[in-house]
Structure formats: structure tokens, C-alpha cells
Design a protein around this nucleic acid. Structure first.
Length: 234
DNA sequence: GCGACAG
DNA sequence: ATCTTGTCGC
């Protein structure tokens, strides 16, 4: 392993699983003492059906006003297939490129996927938090593992997600009458703080504003890349 | 072996 | 994730 990178990315799924078991030991499930969050970033990727490239990006919002203050994106080839439980190996390489171009460092990153609510407790948000060295949260639209009981219909209602006897995350109703999102800590984070920030960054829609901004950014970038590719082939 | 399975 | 029209509900 090199000094400035967490690990290599040319891995087989079997090697990736072994690496996850090592990396989970480095995850810190506690926010840094006196954590001050002034800027929150959303991360996401977008890809075309049946093609092997994708766009990835970050949008940084002011935590107080939720106004975007910075953004960065990249387009690369996907070097890893979609395998449930190994999503980070597919998504993080593009995000690393975008991260290198991001000129404003966020104090917190919200990923579109699981944190500890993962079969080996190393979901996308944990892996990404370790890689970028920033507190992180996983906020997914559906469950990968675990189950939870019913939760109230009102905004702010929660239910613990249990997996193998452990509380690995929380189902959180971010808006009255809509399906919950699934929140779990990534790195340098705990569950209550993660839920607090997801609710803080959510208002009118089911998903946090960070995620929504990042989603729009990477979709735009992907369409631009598609158009550029089409015109260069003529 | 069967079913589940983030994006 | 992406591909897509209509349709249900506030």
C-alpha cells in the first residue's frame, strides 16, 4: 500500500471483500471532539445504460443556508461491476477524480448509499470517509441488509435497523407520508449525529439537498459527455 | 440449493 | 443506476 493512497483499485470481488474486512477496523464511529460543520457535501455518480463509463461529483453546501458554494465532477470508465455489498469499489474511483478537483473542503460528506448498514459494516460512506479523511454519513433509498419495525408517519419519525443483533442504522422519515430513507454512520460519525444531519439537510423532499444537488450535477455532466462523445464520432 | 441484493 | 407514459393525489 502506498503512502498517499488507501489501497489499489485493481481488485477482484474476492479481494475487495477481504479488503473490506481490513478497512472496517479503521473506521471510527464517533464524531471528532468539537466537530464544527460549516460545509456539507453531497456525492453521487451517474451512468449510461449499457456503457462502461460514468460521471461522478460533489456539491458543497453552506450548512446554514444550504446554498451551493462549490462543485466538482469527473468522467471515467467504470473498472468494477455492480455487486451488492461492493458498491464503493465501483463508485469511489470516479469520485476520487472529482475530489481532486474540488477546491472547497467540506466538513461532512453525505453519500447516496449505506454506511455501517452493510454486511461487513463497510458501506460506501465508511469507505469514502476513510478515503477522503472526512466525517461521513450514508443515506440510502433502500435497504441492503437488516430490518426495522414500523415508524410514525410524521417527519422525524425513526426506527432502528437491526442486522445480526446489532443496531446498524435508522430508517428516518424525512417528510410526512413518504417512504423513509436509511441512515447509517460512515466514518468519524455516530448514528444520532448522522440522523440529525440528514434531517437538518432535508426539508421539502425525501432526500437531503446535498444528494439532490449532486444528483443533478452528475446527470448534467453525463449528458454533456454523451453529447461530446457523439459529436466526436462523426 | 433458494432467495435477497445500496447504486 | 438507467430506460420511459401515464396516472394518482395534494
Amino acid at each position: 500500500m502506498e503512502r498517499h493512497s488507501l489501497h489499489g483499485w485493481d481488485l477482484t470481488p474476492t479481494q475487495a471483500v477481504a479488503l473490506q474486512r481490513e478497512l472496517k477496523e479503521r473506521v471510527v464511529l464517533r464524531p471528532p471532539k468539537g466537530l464544527k460543520v460549516e460545509r456539507v457535501a453531497g456525492a453521487d455518480i451517474s451512468m449510461s445504460r449499457g456503457e462502461d463509463w460514468a460521471s461522478g461529483g460533489f456539491v458543497v453546501l453552506d450548512a446554514e443556508t444550504r446554498a451551493p458554494v462549490a462543485r466538482a465532477s469527473a468522467v471515467t470508465r467504470l473498472g468494477f461491476p455492480y455487486v451488492p455489498g461492493l458498491l464503493s469499489f465501483r463508485e469511489l474511483p470516479v469520485l476520487m477524480e472529482a475530489w481532486a478537483r474540488l477546491e472547497v473542503r467540506p466538513d461532512l460528506i453525505i453519500f447516496d448509499g449505506q454506511g455501517t448498514a452493510h454486511p461487513r459494516r463497510l458501506g460506501l460512506a465508511c469507505h469514502g470517509g476513510l478515503l477522503f479523511g472526512v466525517p461521513s454519513i450514508g443515506c440510502a433509498k433502500s435497504l441492503l441488509v437488516g430490518e426495522h419495525g414500523p415508524l410514525g408517519e410524521e417527519r422525524g419519525a425513526v426506527a432502528d435497523i437491526l442486522h445480526q443483533g446489532e443496531v446498524v442504522g435508522r430508517a428516518v422519515r424525512t417528510r410526512r407520508g413518504v417512504l423513509p430513507v436509511y441512515v447509517s454512520p460512515g466514518h468519524l460519525m455516530d448514528l444520532p449525529t448522522a440522523v440529525e444531519w440528514v434531517l437538518r439537510m432535508t426539508s421539502r423532499y425525501r432526500e437531503p439537498e446535498t444528494t439532490r444537488h449532486a444528483h443533478r450535477l452528475v446527470n448534467e455532466v453525463r449528458r454533456e459527455a454523451l453529447a461530446a462523445r457523439a459529436s466526436s464520432r462523426e
